[in-house]
Amino acid sequence: MSFWRGLRGLVCALVGIYLLAPLLVVLVISFSAGSFLRFPPPGLSLQWYHNLLADPAWLDSLAVSLQVLLPTGLIATALGTAAALALVRGKIRSAPFLAAFLLSPLVVPGVITAAGLFLMFRLLGLNGTLAGLVIGHVVLTVPYVVATVGAALRVMDPALERAAAGLGAPPWIAFRRITLPLLAPALASSLLFAMVLSFDELMVALFNGSATLRTVPVQMWSNLRGDFDPSIAAIAALCFLVALLALVAEAWLRRRA
C-alpha cells in the first residue's frame, strides 16, 4: 500500500513540475541579459521589456487585443447569462437540446469555426475588422458563460426567488434584488474568463484579422514561426502574470460565492 502511495506522490510531484516549470522558465528568461533565449540566463536585465515597449508592432497588437477583449467579455456575458437564466429557470421543454447547441462551439475545433467565419465574413466584408473579431470571440466564449452561470443558478435556492415573489416583488425587482446579487460572483468570473479566452485566442484572430489588425497571439505566432525576436519572452511573461492574476481573482470570487 505504501508503495502505491509513494508512486502517487512521485507522479504528483512530476506532474506538478511538468505543469509549472515551463511557466517559471519563461518568467526567468524574460529578465535575461543574454542575446539568446538560453536557460539559465547569463545575467539579469530588463532589455526585453525595453524592446517590447519600444516596438510599435507589439504595442499595436496589445491595443487591438484590448479593443477585442472588452466588448467580447461584455457581450458574451450578457448573452450567456440571459440564455442560462432561460435554460435553468425557464421550464422550456427543449432545454437540454438548446443547451447542447449553445455549448457546441467547445467541441468544434477552432480551425473549422475560424475558416467558416472567414467564408461568411467575405460575403459581409467583415474580415479584417474589429467587429468581425469580436463576433468570432463572442461565439467562442458564450459557451463558457452559459456553463458557469448555469451551474451557479442550479445550486442557488429557487425558494429565495419564490419568497421574493410571494412577498409581492414584481419579477424584475426580484431578479435585481435577489437573483442578480447572488449571481454576481459567477458573472464576474464569466466576464474574466471570457476576456482571458479572447486575449489568448489564435485561430479566429489569425483567419479573420489582417496584416494591420493583429492581436497579441497573432503577433506571437508570426514571431514563433519566423524571425525569432527574444522580446517574445517578455510578452510571454506578461501574459503569464495576467493569467496568474486572473486565476487568483477568480478563486477569490468563487470563495465569495
Binding site: A78, A82, A83, L85, R89, L98, L102, P105, G116, V146
Partner: peptide
C-alpha cells in the same frame, strides 16, 4: 419570456457559428 432571453444567444450562435461552419 424565456425565449426572449434565449433569442440573442441562439441567433448569435446560429448566424456566427452554425451557418458559417455549415457553409464550410
Amino acid at each position: 419570456g424565456p425565449w426572449l432571453l434565449l433569442a440573442p444567444a441562439l441567433l448569435a450562435l446560429f448566424f456566427a457559428f452554425a451557418l458559417p461552419v455549415g457553409m464550410l
